[in-house]
């Protein structure tokens, strides 16, 4: 019922672990795989080790989290060791490496060094709390996005390239089109929203050390859905829907809007990694009760009504 084959990956279900969540160590990613995820996206990494920002970096707020972890990661060589540890789960649970950088060369170098250990790359050109030159500084600009994507495509021939986009632009479909024209094999919509701000009401101090942080979790679902819905009409490549998914009803909404695959991140803090099994169980029951034979039948349904 939930099986599909997309980007050359044989998937037991369409629910991936989202980048940035439980994706630092091979052990934690394996733990999420055992809990029932259909695939894994690693936490973003680049050439060099990066401590990220000082705490507080992630705080739970109404409807989700505000976060400015700041792309903390151990650097490509250490990450490669973690990826090698994942080799034995990839047949059943494909692994996508999320990578970031501040230039075409860095993206290509990181991808070259790790391409033998992953099933696809997700280019993070959309982190809203990255330092200048990284993350959404790239993904807000169609031309810069085009250049990064096409250079990685030229450099890496045999591994699919997914581009993760920021919603914090006037028209996300422009960036989506630029990515497709540059050769992207799929898109991930969306990275966190904002950035936003929370302040302690007693002292007036901004809560995050970095002051501003990306907003994620159930509260951003309507924005993510809009991005998927509009982008589905503009591009022909598969879309990973991500943003606030916490139950099977959310999965249905994203797939109706046009997502072929989904990613789950923040909601793990409510239900634990068991959320993957809870959702896939409920989703199978719903699809069966409603007369579907396979989950892929509902992709883009809202556009046909």
């Amino acid at each position: 019922m939930l099986k599909s084959n997309i980007l050359g990956m044989n998937l037991k279900n369409p629910l991936f672990l989202a980048a940035g969540i439980l994706g630092t160590t091979a052990s934690s990613m394996k733990m999420v795989a055992r809990a029932g995820a259909g695939g894994i996206v690693t936490k973003s990494f680049s050439l060099e080790a990066n401590d990220g920002y000082e705490n507080p970096t992630i705080v739970k707020i109404e409807g989700g989290v505000i976060n400015s972890v700041g792309l903390a990661s151990p650097g490509v060589e250490a990450k490669k060791e973690e990826l090698i540890e994942l080799e034995d789960i990839r047949d059943e649970t494909p692994v996508i490496a999320s990578i970031y950088g501040d230039s075409e060369d860095v993206f290509c170098e990181v991808a070259q060094r790790t391409k033998d250990y992953v099933d696809a790359f997700e280019l993070n050109v959309s982190c809203p709390h990255a330092k200048c030159g990284f993350g959404s500084n790239i993904g807000e600009d169609p031309e810069m996005t085009y250049n990064i994507v096409s250079s990685v495509k030229d450099s890496i021939k045999d591994v699919p390239i997914i581009v993760k986009l920021t919603p914090n632009v006037t028209d996300i479909t422009e960036i989506a089109k630029a990515s497709q024209e540059a050769g992207a094999d799929a898109l991930t919509l969306i990275n966190s929203v904002g950035p936003g701000l929370r302040i302690d009401y007693q002292t007036g101090k901004p809560i995050l050390n970095n002051v501003l942080g990306g907003i994620a979790g159930p509260m951003i679902k309507p924005i993510a859905l809009k991005c998927v819905y509009n982008t589905y009409k503009t591009v022909d490549i598969p879309i990973f829907g991500v943003g606030g998914i916490k139950d099977y009803k959310d999965v249905l909404e994203f797939m109706y809007a046009g997502a072929s695959l989904l990613q789950i991140g923040t909601s793990i803090m409510y239900d634990g990694p068991e959320i993957f099994k809870n959702i896939t169980d409920d989703l199978s029951i719903f699809l069966e009760e409603n007369g579907y034979n396979n989950v892929t039948e509902i992709i883009g349904l809202s556009h046909e009504l």
């Binding site: 940035g20 969540i21 439980l22 994706g23 630092t24 160590t25 091979a26 052990s27 934690s28 990613m29 394996k30 733990m31 999420v32 936490k43 990220g52 705490n55 970096t57 992630i58 705080v59 739970k60 989290v65 976060n67 972890v69 903390a72 991140g265 923040t266 793990i268 803090m269 634990g272």
Partner: peptide, 19 residues
Amino acid sequence: MKCGLGICGQCCIDDTGYR
């Protein structure tokens, strides 16, 4: 530790991935 909420993955411990 970073989040304390079980999502950032910073405190996960080998081999089980316990948070």
